[in-house]
Nucleic acid binder design. Structure first.
Lengths: 192, 192
DNA sequence: GGCCGGCATTGAACTAGGACAAGAAAATCA
DNA sequence: TGATTTTCTTGTCCTAGTTCAATGCCGGCC
């Protein structure tokens, strides 16, 4: 149950055996069926979840029902709306399972106590957020500067396993193009 | 010289008088003329700079010379390519002054020693990055989901002082639209 | 096995925004 | 002050991507 996350922790921080077992003790293990909405717009996000198994999507919806996928997340990723989690304010995104999921969950209180017991994890979480920020910066650039085709090619290169796991129209909504146009891009690519 | 940053620090962390003066002691004060490139693509970013005075732009350029402005920053902002700064790896962005600037600078070493002397600042920097991440998430959404006009209106609402300080075509490159089209959007808005 | 709902494809008509070009206006500087 | 460079505007034509609608497809479920 903790294999995956412990391997992860060993690679991302160096904790003593006691620290690691304390960490494990405060995690809550939960499973969720496919298509469960873990966070609704307007709710406060009270989890920071490590994906032990499964696939999750974070997305926004505007007034007209237009969806933008912010992120897909699979095994070994942390998922949360950090702004909402951290400031305990209503989120403006949705988080939804795309497959049956096994999650290891930190609540705001357990994270708080984790950080006070193991202060060096402050650093790991900071780095996690930094990485996230930096890759989002790069993505914004590509979203603005490149064609639909290049975005798609870049996507399958960066996330080669995702297309097998999630419906294609969600990928379109990640790339910021319509599902129909993604289909056209793909058939054009296939002809080469 | 330290007024502005000390006010900032008092609002964002609570340090003792000694900690604050230690903090001041490791900052390096520097001024730069307008249009100085502080960081070139390919270089390692070795500063995290607090803007005491002036205005700065961070941007990407693609192979065809197409520019995307990632961020404008003015007084009270921190500016850096954190990924490059933190991992000491080449940056893929540019950072440039748009006005004459007064900066208070942390080097990687001084930040390191700052964090080991005043570990609670780890938290302040993490929160800074989190805020940044969260606002970038919102921006990506708007970039994809809204029209040029709405993006522009949103921009002047969020950053009302920026349009007076920076050339309009840079704003266009922030919004992800052409300078010409921004001009058309503006004349259309002016007619109402 | 048949039906149903989500998903992908394709085509035709349309549009937001881009590219280019040429001036006008404003800022910079000697 | 005038000269030069940078910025902004306006018009025309063009295209990448959208919207809408129709069709087919696959997988799940009774």
């Amino acid at each position: 149950m903790f294999d995956r996350i412990n391997t992860y922790m060993i690679n991302h921080a160096n904790l003593t055996a006691e620290e690691l077992s304390y960490f494990n003790s405060i995690l809550q293990f939960k499973t969720f069926p496919k298509k469960t909405i873990l966070l609704h717009e307007g709710e406060i996000c009270n989890f920071e979840a490590f994906i032990n198994k499964g696939c999750i999507r974070m997305y926004y919806i505007d007034e007209n029902g237009f969806e933008v996928t912010l992120q897909f997340a699979i095994e070994d990723w942390w998922v949360s709306d950090i702004a909402s989690f951290h400031d305990q304010k209503p989120s403006n995104m949705f988080i939804e399972t795309l497959e049956e999921c096994e999650l290891l969950i930190l609540s705001p209180q357990s994270k708080e106590s984790l950080l006070s017991h193991v202060p060096q994890l402050e650093r790991m979480f900071r780095i996690l957020v930094q990485r996230n920020l930096s890759s989002l910066q790069g993505r914004l650039f590509k979203t603005i500067a490149t064609s639909a085709q290049d975005k798609y090619l870049d996507f399958i290169k960066r996330y080669p396993t995702i297309p097998q796991r999630v419906p294609q129209h969600y990928i379109a909504s990640y790339l910021g193009i319509s599902a129909e146009f993604l289909s056209k891009v793909r058939t054009k690519l296939a002809k080469k």
